[in-house]
Design a protein around this nucleic acid. Structure first.
Lengths: 111, 111
DNA sequence: CATTTGCGTAAGTCATAGCTTACGCCTATC
DNA sequence: GATAGGCGTAAGCTATGACTTACGCAAATG
């Protein structure tokens, strides 16, 4: 059930920011934390969560710890989401959209 | 930023259960809540969150409210995740994997 | 028109998640 | 071998989110 951990990990905004900072490639913790509003220990804690969710990998070089994106967690989430694109689902969706207007008022407001 | 709401919505286990119950097609609230460990009002609150995240749509039939999966939220998340599959990323991943063993100990243990 | 069915919403409780500061462990360097 | 850099972890605080019960509203039903 890695997809569950990955979803929970990606749900937090600052943790997503940490994760997104790894887009360009592997970075040590200090560099990741630099410029963020939260403290460096907070970043360490986020990285721990991301690691357990298979979203990042870690390797050490001297005194530093480099973190890089791990595609395992991403793939797990992707697979989970793909399970909702069944033809049965989209077929129903088409049905609902043609049925709904007859029922009456759809709430057009966004938020 | 719908993907952010969708990720937050899918992070909760019981909310995911609610969402997954819509796989077979649209269902009224009572039917969704039936068999779950949480109360029906709790389900209503979850559906509200899912709706704001564009993960479900709602339409009414008499006194009932039917909920069905909305692919908008799913697509938003999918797009977000796809942004991490850049060639630059996978290229780096290959680099890291060839570089890492030389550095020494990789932590092979899972949890 | 009173009652029932099917919901959403309000209010309040409780657990948890994210943050901080303080501390301690490695590794490198002098 | 002492010092400094780079992190992870522990402990504690606080906000938030998931739940409950109580209530109220709209549509169907008699």
């Amino acid at each position: 059930m890695t997809y569950a951990n990955a979803l929970a990990a990606l749900a937090d905004p600052t943790r997503r920011t940490v994760f997104e900072r790894l887009r360009g490639g592997a970075k040590p913790v200090g560099e990741i934390a630099n410029g963020l509003t939260v403290s460096r220990p907070a970043v360490s804690q986020h990285l721990k969560v991301l690691k357990e969710a298979r979203l990042v990998t870690e390797y050490r070089d001297g005194t530093r710890r480099f973190y890089a994106i791990d595609t395992q967690g991403l793939e797990a989430v992707r697979k989970y989401l793909d399970g909702f694109w069944d033809e049965a689902l989209t077929r129903f969706k088409a049905f609902a959209e043609s049925e709904e207007p007859r029922r009456g008022k759809r709430k057009g407001k966004s938020k």
